[in-house]
Design a protein around this nucleic acid. Structure first.
Lengths: 155, 155
DNA sequence: TATAATCCCGACTGAAAGCATCAAGAATAA
DNA sequence: TTATTCTTGATGCTTTCAGTCGGGATTATA
């Protein structure tokens, strides 16, 4: 598993939306996420749309528009996010559960490399399946302390 | 961490050389590894050369030439191999120990994403640092049973 | 010493992925 | 009606990946 810039941006955006998540229908504008997290706006558009079609976000158009989480942040695991943005978590797709692809070795069940990679996959999944967006937001708060706006991107 | 075809080939080649490893100076030709593992010969050349300059292999030129492990297979971890072929094991290089690169976030120590990725990195490294080429060869033997030539590539 | 087999080295290529940017359209609050 | 926002699809640039190629250096053997 390798996290691309795209995936990192997705997580950063979800942190903003997670911290902002309230039970009513408040939304956050792309523009705001973009400036707060220093993400190219046009690129972020793509990514948020992607997360939306993955069922993670919902949006509202027009002048009071923006994005919000479709589910509470405790119900979104990093595994789910990354799978949608990056594809398989496994180091090789012949050990991936949902992105399985046959590899070139003659007998997968007897492939030694595969057996090691399966262990690696399981270790990765165990962590990412466990950590939710809500927990990620918690980490942000404890790590960054009680600042005015813990998210502001500072260069 | 994502294992490319190149990395997979490297491991497969090392399995051949590991199984073949004897204390005298017997060597295995590229050609043989290529046909036994069904790896494009010209491509394999590159890879073996790469492993050589990484200090993992040594070679002999000329008509009785070939490659062999420079160290006993128990002393070569998969982590070392993959790091040389693929680069960082970590999912993002700002949590990599030997391929560290600063990322774009303002304060790395307080980055929540980073803290999760560090856990992922540690889990990956823990496994790959532990498994050696010798153990990989063992797995081949136990998985594939006592065949005449457990390595032959069969389509 | 000639030769054939082997490793050695760097350049090259075509396809795909990654990181965006852009233009124009659709919805909506004020 | 208008300004602001999301929506969609196309496009462009750069880097990586997988693999090929030509020609050179080395060496066992006859």
């Amino acid at each position: 598993m390798k996290l691309s810039v795209r995936g990192e941006y997705a997580l950063r955006a979800l942190i903003v939306l997670g911290l902002d998540y309230i039970e009513d229908d408040s939304v956050v504008r792309i523009q705001e996420i973009s400036t707060r997290q220093n993400i190219p706006k046009r690129f972020l558009e793509q990514i948020l749309n992607d997360l939306k079609s993955a069922g993670l976000l919902e949006s509202k158009r027009g002048i009071a528009g923006g994005y919000r989480l479709k589910r509470p942040p405790e119900k979104i695991s990093l595994a789910e996010v990354i799978r949608h943005i990056e594809g398989p978590l496994a180091p090789v797709s012949c050990v991936s559960e949902r992105f399985y692809e046959k590899c070139s070795c003659p007998n997968e069940d007897k492939c030694a490399i595969r057996s090691v990679m399966k262990e690696v996959r399981d270790a990765i999944v165990r962590i990412l399946e466990d950590v939710t967006v809500a927990q990620l937001c918690e980490r942000v708060k404890t790590l960054q302390g009680p600042q005015t706006n813990p998210l502001d991107y500072i260069i």
